[in-house]
Simulated assay, not measured.
Amino acid sequence: MAAEDQAPRTKPHPDKSKKRKKPKKDKWGQPFSVAAAEEPLVEPEQEPPAEDVEAAAEAEETAAAAEGYEPGKVVASGLPYTMTEVEIRKLFEWYGPLRSVQLSRFPDSGNFRGLAFVCFESDEVAIKSLELDGFKIGNRFMRVERCRVTASSNRKRKAEFQADPDKSEGCLSAYVGNLSWNVTEKDLQDFFKSSKIASIRFAIDKRTGGFRGFCHVDFQDDESLEKAIGMNQSELQGRPVKIAYSVSNRG
């Protein structure tokens, strides 16, 4: 008998050679490829809850204040006198969104003095912008450093949480805050055109010579003062202006 006749004869399964492996499925019951199966499943990123974002921002501000710095704020000095606010914004916005840019100017001429305060929406971004320290613009090297907390900034921060002061006897002055850095005396005279103004006193930073964003307006009579107080939160140059009775320790 031939050797092949002695081998056990087993009938192959009719579909064995054509049988396909059952496709693997993910946890949602959908099939995925072998290549995909070899890679770990990555869940899509989700934005953190708003509460977490606010808590993180508060933590940043607390940490910055503890170190003696204004949260999210840097000082840029050594800038060319010909540089504009638009150019400064463009330079720093590369690192992240800004809250404000304040240019320090010479009191007599009003010309830019090469010093600017840049406030970011995040203290983390402000720290990253310190990379610009030593950056050359034209023939000058700019200096960028974190803005230190001053006594005036502490008073301003505390005042934000205080109620508006009551009118004192004989008061004819109003505190006018949240003003644009570019506001002029004429702008304020036009703003309070229905009142009789005696004088306007702009608040100037003694260290930098820059405008601090608020002023005191003295009126000629009580009626003019009350008209001005009634304009609280009215808009001037795109900003809601804070107007309250002036107190002796302000300014």
Rank of each mutant, 00 (worst) to 15 (best):
F202S: 06
G238Q: 02
F120D: 01
M231D: 06
G210A: 13
F161I: 12
D166Q: 12
K227V: 13
Y175S: 01
N182P: 00
A203Q: 07
N232D: 15
R155V: 11
I197W: 08
C119W: 05
V217T: 01
S194G: 08
V118H: 03
A159Q: 13
S199A: 10
R157F: 10
D205F: 13
Q189A: 01
L172I: 08
A126K: 03
S180Q: 02
R212S: 04
L236S: 05
P107A: 11
R143D: 07
F219M: 02
I200M: 01
V144F: 06
S109G: 03
K206W: 11
K156H: 09
D218M: 00
T150F: 09
R207M: 15
H216K: 00
R148T: 15
T208N: 08
M142Y: 06
R212E: 06
K128Q: 13
I204K: 12
D187P: 02
A198M: 10
L172P: 06
N178C: 07
F219H: 00
H216M: 00
F106L: 09
F192I: 05
E235V: 14
E145P: 00
S153R: 14
G213I: 01
G210N: 05
I200V: 10
V144T: 07
N139Y: 14
D133T: 12
K167D: 12
G177F: 05
G138F: 09
N178D: 13
T208M: 11
T184W: 06
A126I: 02
V101P: 02
A228K: 02
L115Q: 02
K128H: 10
K128V: 06
G213H: 03
L236R: 05
E169W: 15
N154Y: 11
S122K: 08
D222P: 08
E223L: 15
K186H: 08
G238W: 04
E145L: 11
F191D: 06
G213D: 07
R207C: 12
D222W: 08
F202A: 07
R201E: 01
L115T: 04
C147I: 04
R207V: 14
G110F: 05
S194I: 13
D123Y: 04
S180K: 03
N232T: 11
V149H: 06
S173N: 08
M231P: 04
L172F: 09
N111I: 02
A163R: 14
F161D: 15
